[in-house]
Amino acid sequence: MKTKLLIGALALAGAGAASAQTLDTVRARGVLNCGVSTGVAGFSYIDADGEWDGFDVAVCRAVAAAIFDDPSAVEFTPTTGATRFEALNSGEVDMLSRNTTWTFSRDVDLRLEFVGVNYYDGQGFMVPASLGVTSAMELDGATVCIQTGTTTELNLADFFRANNMSYEPVPIETNAEAQQRYLANACDVYTTDVSGLAATRSTFEDPSAHVILPEIISKEPLGPVVREDDPAWVNLVRWVFQGLIIAEEKGVTSENVAELASAPTDDPETNRLLGTEGAFGEMLNLTNDFMVRAISAVGNYGEIFEAHIGVDTPVGLERGLNALYTDGGILYAPPFR
C-alpha cells in the first residue's frame, strides 16, 4: 500500500513535471521523442543503415512528419516492457508506439491515453504439422512453451482450466529462447500473440511444417499511447493515427496524396482530411495539410501494414481483424469532420 501511495505521488509529481504544452516542447526541441520496443520482428527493428523501421515505428514517423514535415525528426528511445510506462510518465518520451495492450488498468490507473488500436492481436497456438492437431481443443496433456510473467501465461491457464484440459508448462524467458526450445522439440506447443507466432514461424527453415491453430484465446488490442495530462497532444497523436486509417478508407496513398491535395476533390471527407476544405489542422495547432505530410511520409494504414508485416513480407500476416470494416475487419476510424 505504501509503495502504491509512493508511486502515485511520484506519478502526480511527474504529471506536474511533464504536463501540458507537449507540442510546444517538441517544437522547441526540434525532434519527437518516441518510445519503441527493443525489437519485435516487423514492428520495430534497426535496418542495415542503423535506422529504426517497422510497423510501430511508422506511427512515430507519421506524427513527426505531421509536426515537422520531416519523418526523420524522431529520436527513438528503445523501451522494455518494464520501463515503457515510466519513460512515458516521466516525460522522457512524448509518445509510445510499442505493441502495448490497451487494458483498463493501464488506461485508468496509470493515467495513460490509448489513441487507438493499430493492431488487433490475440494469443494463439503453434504446433508442428506432423502432430496432426487441428484445434486447440485437442491439446490435452501437451507440453507448452510459455513466456513467464506475462499475461499470456495467465490466459493459457484460464483456457485449459475452462476446457477441463491439463498441460505441462515449459517456462522460457524470451521469444528467441522459445524458438530454440520449440525447434528442439522441448515442447509440443508454443503459445504467444499470433503476430509473434507468425513472425517466429517465418524464420523457420520450413514454415509449412508448422501450423497456427485457429483458436484465439485472448484479446490484445495494441496501440500507440500518450500521457493523459495534455489533451491537445492526445488529440494530435490520435488524429494523425486515425487519419492514416481514414486515408486507407478513402483510397489516399503516399503516391496519389500530392495530386489529391493539390485541388479539392469530389469527396468532402478526403478534402477535410487533406486540408483543402475546412481548417482542421489549425484546431490541432498544426497547418491544415498535416495529414498530407504524414501520408506522403509513411503511406496510409494499409500501406504501412503491407510494407512491414503484410503477406508479402517475411512476417506474412493476413489483414484479418485488422482489415477495414468495409473489408470484413474491425478497423473503424471515427469520421473526420
Binding site: 527493443t38 525489437g39 519485435v40 520482428a41 516487423g42 514492428f43 520495430s44 527493428y45 534497426i46 535496418d47 542495415a48 529504426w52 523501421d53 517497422g54 528511445t77 528503445p78 523501451t79 522494455t80 518494464a82 520501463t83 519513460a87 528467441a176 513472425a199 517465418s202 513480407t313 517475411p314 512476417v315
Partner: peptide, 18 residues
C-alpha cells in the same frame, strides 16, 4: 535493460529485422 543499446541490447532489434 533500460533501453541503452549496448552490443547485447542491439541483438534484439537486429534479429527483429526480418
Amino acid at each position: 535493460v533500460i533501453g541503452l543499446l549496448d552490443p547485447l541490447g542491439l541483438t534484439n532489434p537486429i534479429r527483429a529485422d526480418s
